[in-house]
Write a protein that binds this DNA or RNA. Structure first.
Ligand SMILES: [Mn+2]
Ligand SMILES: [Mn+2]
Ligand SMILES: [Mn+2]
Ligand SMILES: [Mn+2]
Lengths: 218, 218
DNA sequence: AAATATTGTTAGACTAGTCTAACTTATTAT
DNA sequence: ATAATAAGTTAGACTAGTCTAACAATATTT
């Protein structure tokens, strides 16, 4: 069985190699950065995960998940998102509070628990941030999503998910009047820094490009 | 903050020093035994817990919890029992399945989670094994309980709690026709080995003294 | 093509938690 | 009161996970 640490490395590799459009490999420094460890530390773990045949990796080469590693990573993601849904739907947590606790809960080992939890929640499809919850077989349709930053001026769209799950980002989102399913109109875009003027429920706000890149819309 | 391991040592000391009637101190070997580690290992941890002022302990002396350590231990017990109640009441776990998973869940750190969980469960007083759930302030009335092994022949009593939480014991209890609130009549007791003939719902069974010692009755 | 910057690796050290083997202290029995 | 047994401690070793500092390989810029 995997340690919590190993699980976290696999999950990080999953998001690093399958969340970004067109990216399928990751690097040591990059991985170390998202896990808040030094590259030397990540390097040690990469050797171990390679030894366990969970990742494919050669010295000085790029890193990618092997089938077994990907399967485990998806299981953690599934647990994380089911727990987030539980906290949000049943325990009255707000969407900016769920992620941190789910980071712990995702490491509880009990197939029965997840099965029962999913049933209790009535087989939810999306977590509180609009992310797809993988099913028990590890299947997960990756929706093609674009970000608000890519939307042309004048267009109106609907917020379907958020990329960043941190409390500070999510609180800012709420502050601007946004939530899942909100309608957003792009009023202007500054070519200088990509910042946007947006309209939500008749309310105008100016937001940075970085902010817009963390909102998925259709 | 405490590690999971430290939490497990404190919890073990709590049950060792406050569950048994009249016992207020524990020994190194005894502690090691319940935690499934060697005495040498427990000895190292005792030094650390003493250093943190969570236990009172002198070389070659007896071990007991200090106020701060006891408080932390009770918090873990509270979390353990609330999670067991959740699994049993909301997720359809059977009473022999809850303990193992709760052993993991009890180490999740989030005051808000426990507060919300308790509310969601509507402030339960007892867990699925009949044990008292400490309240948010760490208060917990210790019920005076006797075991079935102490009951005189001919008397009838009610099962209010089980001491052993292991799946194998609990499954045996069910097999004999018992559950919380069951009425039990002691028909005979062998003075040779303390084994009992009991009657539950008109059904006779013969059980060992060890078995009877793990059933709390009134 | 060199020089520079970035990225990745190694070696050595540290902490937490565990073990075995040897030893010491305390308790119990004779 | 000794001897035998049980309980407890120490020393040294090992694994997992982390770090810093030095070094090596690769990628980018000029
Ligand atoms: Mn999340
Ligand atoms: Mn995690
Ligand atoms: Mn239990
Ligand atoms: Mn535990």
């Amino acid at each position: 069985m995997l340690t919590q640490t190993e699980e976290n490395y696999l999950k990080a590799l999953f998001t690093l190699t399958e969340t970004e459009e067109g990216k399928t490999e990751a690097g040591t420094n990059e991985l170390a950065a998202v896990l808040n460890v030094k590259p030397a530390t990540a390097n040690d773990m990469l050797k171990k995960l390679k030894e366990k045949k969970l990742i494919s990796y050669e010295k000085y080469g790029k890193i990618s998940l092997m089938a077994a590693g990907r399967k485990l990573a998806v299981e953690i993601v599934r647990k994380h998102r089911l727990w987030e849904t539980f906290l949000y739907e049943k325990l009255e947590f707000t969407w900016d509070e769920v992620h941190e606790v789910a980071e712990q809960l995702e490491h509880i080992h009990s197939p029965k628990l997840i099965e029962k939890l999913e049933k209790f929640l009535d087989y939810p499809q999306l977590d509180p941030h609009g992310d797809v919850i993988p099913n028990a077989k590890g299947e997960m349709k990756m929706p093609v999503r674009k970000t608000l930053a890519q939307l042309p001026v004048g267009k109106t769209c609907k917020l379907v998910a958020v990329k960043d799950n941190s409390a500070s980002f999510l609180q800012y989102v709420v502050q601007v009047g946004l939530g899942l399913s909100s309608k957003i109109k792009v009023v202007t875009r500054q070519s200088f820094d990509g910042s946007l003027e947006i309209e939500v429920n008749g309310r105008r706000s100016s937001v940075s490009q970085k902010f817009a890149e963390n909102l998925y819309v259709v």
